[in-house]
Structure formats: C-alpha cells, structure tokens
C-alpha cells in the first residue's frame, strides 16, 4: 500500500500511526500487568508450586506487615521531591531567562549526570559521604555533625541520593514551561506597578505550574518505588518498599506477595496523583 491508500482512508491514518505504540503498550505493559495481577492473587510457595486461589490476604498482609516501609517510601519520595523542586526552580528560571547563548550548554550540564549509569552515580555518593570523606569531616569540624557522626548509612543519605538522581526530571520540565512564558506579560505586570516579587507570584509562577506538576510527578513516582538508594546509602532501618518487593521476589521467591505489594504501591501512587491533580486543577497538567 502506498500513499494512495492513506489518501483514500484519511481516517485510518491516525490509527495506523498509533498502532506501533499501542501494540508496544499492550505487549509490554498491559499483558505483564495482567499477569502480575493474576500472580498477586495466587497462594503457595516455590517448593509446592503456586495456584490461583483469589488470595486477597496477600494484600492485607502486605499492608499490615510492611506499613512502615510504605510510609517511609512516600515520606522519602515526598521530601526528595520538595527539595528537588526548591533546588531546580531557581536553576531552571535562571537558564530560561538569563541563560542567553549558554542555554544549551547549561541544559547539557543538567543532563550530564545521566551519561553515567544510575548505579555508578549512586555508588559515587558512597565515596562522597564516606565516614572519612571530605563532607563528613567538614561538617564535623563545623560542629554540625557530632564527632563520630555519619552521613552514609542514614536516612539523610537516602533522601539526598534520591534527590540527586531524579533532579533532572524536575529541572527539565520546569525549564520548558518557564522558557515558554511570554516575557512581555511580566513587563506588563511591572508596568502596572507590581513589584518583582508580586509579578513572580502572580504571573511567572502560575504560568510555570504545568512544569511544576510534570516535574513533581516525574520525580515523585519513580522515587517512591526506588530501592537502589536505600540499599546503597541507607542503614538497617532505612529500607523502602522497593527493597521489600525486591527481596520478596528475588530472595524469598514469593511472587504473589511481591506482586500484591507492587499493586498496592501502584494504587497509592495513582490515588496521590489524582488528589494532586484535583488540587492544582487538572488543566494545569496539560498546560
């Protein structure tokens, strides 16, 4: 079929173009998801085999047994998202409005850590935060950290690692939405006697909300399911739900429990996203 076919079937063009993507999603997302849902309701063990029994107690025991790790995951992810927003906003703002011809180079700098794999970046933080490292020694000298105190293997290190690893996901959408703002609107606000701060809070910030929403979602969602940072930078009491799912799946070979926990995690994230979208107004999501 050549272009003639497309001309004769105008309406089907869109579907044809969508097909590869849809097919990809069905095969690699929907099918595994269905499989996971099925698995989450199985019971049994690797020794005797698993059987589908509508085992809803996989869900209830996940919540009663691992409530702490669920709560901790969302707390860590929430704090990391907030810090990432506070750090990225001024940076994105500066690049968008003052970057000039350096814009592309500066953006490249934000993305640069992505050229190194996630794992190596996190391992590097082990060295940076090491008990005998520069940061710990400096903080101890400044009496911010008590002698013999540590950063590595603490919750602080886990949150710091997550913040760092997901920062570009925050900074880039912020930049995009700030960059699109028509600067004459800000000038107009100032002409109407708005102070710089008022202009920012009444004009710039509201116009950048789509970026804020996209950035926070892109940061928060993967952060809540992360387990690498907790494993490499945390201690015995800093594990997140991702660590539990990982060890259920890989070490205990308890597929049903791991599947049920994944679904609970997904459900909570979905609920939080809906509440958040409702709060900021869903039209902000699409700009």
């Amino acid at each position: 079929m050549g272009f003639g076919f497309l001309h004769r079937h105008r309406g089907s063009t869109a579907y044809l173009l969508l097909a590869p993507g849809m097919l990809f999603l069905v095969v690699f997302f929907l099918v595994p998801l269905g499989f996971l849902a099925y698995q989450s309701l199985e019971s049994g063990s690797i020794d005797f085999g698993y059987a589908f029994t509508w085992a809803w107690d996989n869900y209830s025991s996940a919540i009663t047994g691992y409530g702490t790790q669920f709560k901790r995951s969302f707390a860590y992810a929430g704090i990391a998202t907030a810090i990432a927003l506070l750090v990225s906003y001024p940076v994105a703002y500066w690049i968008a409005f003052r970057g000039g011809r350096w814009k592309n180079l500066l953006l490249l700098c934000i993305v640069a850590p992505f050229f190194v794999t996630y794992l190596i970046r996190t391992l590097a933080w082990q060295t940076i935060l090491s008990d005998d490292g520069l940061i710990v020694r400096t903080l101890t000298d400044m009496h911010i950290l008590s002698p013999g105190g540590r950063l590595l293997a603490t919750g602080t290190a886990v949150v710091a690692g997550i913040t760092y690893n997901f920062l570009p996901f925050m900074a880039l959408p912020l930049y995009v939405s700030l960059e699109q703002i028509d600067q004459t609107l800000i000038e107009a606000a100032e002409d109407l006697y708005a102070s710089k701060w008022t202009a920012f809070f009444r004009v710039t910030f509201p116009l950048s909300l789509p970026g804020v929403v996209a950035g926070t979602l892109l940061t928060f969602i993967p952060a809540a399911g992360d387990f690498i940072n907790a494993q490499l930078l945390g201690s015995t009491t800093n594990h997140m739900i991702g660590n539990v799912i990982n060890s259920k799946y890989n070490e205990l070979i308890d597929y049903p429990a791991a599947a049920a926990m994944s679904f609970i995690l997904m459900a909570i994230i979905l609920a939080l996203v809906l509440i958040y979208a409702r709060a900021v107004g869903s039209e902000k999501l699409t700009g």
């Binding site: 082990q126 060295t127 090491s130 005998d132 590595l152 293997a153 945390g234 201690s235 015995t236 009491t237």
Partner: peptide, 23 residues
C-alpha cells in the same frame, strides 16, 4: 545488635568496598 545501632547495614559482596574505605 541492630536496635542498639551496632550494625551499619546488611551487605552482599559490597561489604568489601566499605571495609577497604574504613566505613
């Protein structure tokens, strides 16, 4: 031992790096 803060972390092979660095 965990509750008393004695234990830093449970390790796989990666204890090797931490032992070398003095952590």
């Amino acid at each position: 031992a965990v509750d008393s803060g004695q234990i830093r972390q449970f390790y796989g092979n990666d204890y090797a790096g931490a032992l070398s660095s003095g952590d």
